[in-house]
Design a binder for these strands. Structure first.
Lengths: 333, 333
DNA sequence: GTGAAAGCGCTAACAA
DNA sequence: TTGTTAGCGCTTTCAC
């Protein structure tokens, strides 16, 4: 690897001049500057970021932890983060916690040892404890919150989104509306449940606990929860289902199929989170779409702007709006 | 951040002893070792990887470049890479080239400046040139090849996989079998096309150029290519379609729908690369499934084992087998 | 078995 | 405007 001294020799200046010419061009005479730049280019010089980071005590590195990189929502979000980071010359370390606090802990330690300047994280159930590892690093939570004080967050307006979905069902004439909810440990699941309840109550409908089944945000859990709800006696069985996320929606679709119910004639189905298959399946699934890319992009921009301030900024929470996309899986009662 | 000297003070030894105790335990007396370890633990010491990397001239860092992190195939592959890397104490920088050689170039420079020990890359069209940037870094190409000499690769047996898919169609009685092929610039596309041709020829069928349409490996391209093939006069129109990847398959499904053709009665459809929606759509799509996770995992293991040798190893190419999954989108003619 | 000292490549005082 | 020097935190000779 070619280093600053090699450039210095070729340009016939000292290494500090090279450093200056390359990083603070206005501190060096135009003629020398050009000579240095030419030399650097000629040698294909790439600054050693390890050395630079060690010296400046900053790495231009951001950490990103998601809970499931295989889910399109997270993959898209990660892309948003990376695009924003790149725009500002940051590089991002991507980790996949798989919802496992132990992995999160391990990865936070790993990340910490690379002197990151900031962290974007989709919290797990133990994030609040784990964040101790990274000291007073600037942290932004994405999608969900861990309740850690002093941590900024960029979220989706889950309550309003869920509420919109359920109001849509109510408008179609449905009265027994079931919900396949996510785990109580996840704030998004709670908020979506809250939106569901709000919609019912403000339409003068009762919240019936037997119409709410809890899954694990995975396909399998969605399948089981849906089966539970749909095996209620015909009179009590929901005529419409609101599913808390897309993974569970996949399970729900399979469960409905196994029960030989027709969507949307015998059952209306709507889910939180859009995916390609929701659009491709027949009938195409109505959904509450989340701005996944924007979420990542904006969160990253926010983080970087936070890093540029010298004073600590009061904790902020940003909520992005969802979009109700009505396709063919929801129909009048 | 707590450093080695702090630990040294607490353990009442020199910083070199701490370093040794932590990284080469057998070089210090058991009693001191324990004292040091206890002190390190007590202070929550995390080694500074920048300093370590600078000193040892190695970073325990691997680069991974994929062309589309949003595609499930790439996301899964990335997960395989990360899992394998983690097992060996490596950390991976993930970049998304979006098939753009300029991004690839930029990211390679960025990566290079962090002193990576190895690179896993899904090549773009200019990878052969771009690899110059990383000098004699150990490189493994994934999924496709760039033809760069001295570069190892872990690939999928595309020819056999494609051949199996088309033979399946032939066995069902199809004679006019179309192919929606990928761009000629991508080796996987070429190989799948080759498999298609082999299957036809060895069944005594002719390869008809008008039954081959080329897309861009994206949904839109798949849609158009499919439309082209299906708008042939009825007598010439294919009765079955083999699609080169899952993105284009999504487009194909939409095109078939827009033409109001019934799958599989009027048209059999099979595609390379499995996805969740292929499984969920109705009729479920028959596919050639790729071992994406294993591909990443094995490639990363291979890379790491390569790094452990001191002598250069002759270039290796590994081909993983695909699996033909027959669902409901293919039926007898 | 342990410590002192040098140095990885870079940047930032401080001098000139 | 430019060069000299010190030092970021770590590992590794080289002594003892």
């Amino acid at each position: 690897m070619i280093k600053i001294e090699d450039v210095a020799k070729l340009a016939e200046v000292s290494s500090s001049t090279v450093s200056r010419a390359l990083t603070r061009p206005d501190m060096v005479a135009p003629s020398t500057r050009e000579r240095v730049i030419r030399a650097a280019h000629q040698l294909g010089y790439q600054p050693n970021k390890l050395a630079r980071g060690l010296r400046k005590q900053q790495s231009h590195l951001l950490g990103l932890m998601v809970t499931d990189i295989l889910a399109p929502f997270h993959a898209t979000l990660a892309k948003g983060v990376q695009d924003a980071a790149e725009k500002h010359g940051y590089v991002v370390f991507l980790f996949n916690t798989d919802e496992q606090p132990e992995k999160e802990e391990r990865y936070l330690k790993e990340l910490q040892s690379h002197l990151p300047e900031g962290l974007l994280i989709v919290p797990t159930s133990k994030t609040r404890q784990n964040l101790g590892i990274v000291g007073n690093l600037t942290v932004i939570e994405l999608d969900r919150t861990s309740g850690t004080p002093g941590v900024h967050s960029v979220l989706v307006d889950n309550v309003t989104g869920a509420r919109g979905a359920v109001e849509h069902l109510i408008k179609l004439g449905h009265r027994r509306i079931g919900m396949v909810a996510g785990p109580h440990s996840v704030t998004t699941a709670l908020e979506r449940l809250e939106g569901y309840k709000q919609a019912l109550l403000s339409a003068g409908l009762q919240v019936q606990e037997e119409l709410i089944a809890t899954g694990d945000h995975k396909e399998e859990g969605g399948y089981r929860a849906t089966q539970t709800l749909l095996s209620l006696p015909p009179k009590l069985r929901p005529t419409a289902l609101f599913v808390g996320n897309s993974e569970m929606a996949a399970g729900a679709v399979l469960a409905v199929r196994d029960l030989h119910l027709n969507i949307p004639n015998q059952l209306s189905l709507i889910s939180f989170d859009d995916t390609r298959w929701a659009r491709l399946m027949q009938p195409a699934l109505s959904v509450v779409a989340q701005p996944a890319y924007d979420l990542g992009y904006i969160a990253c921009e926010t983080l970087i702007s936070l890093l540029k301030r010298d004073k600590p900024v009061p904790t902020t929470t940003l909520r992005l709006n969802t979009e109700l996309i009505i396709r063919q899986s929801t129909a009048p009662r």
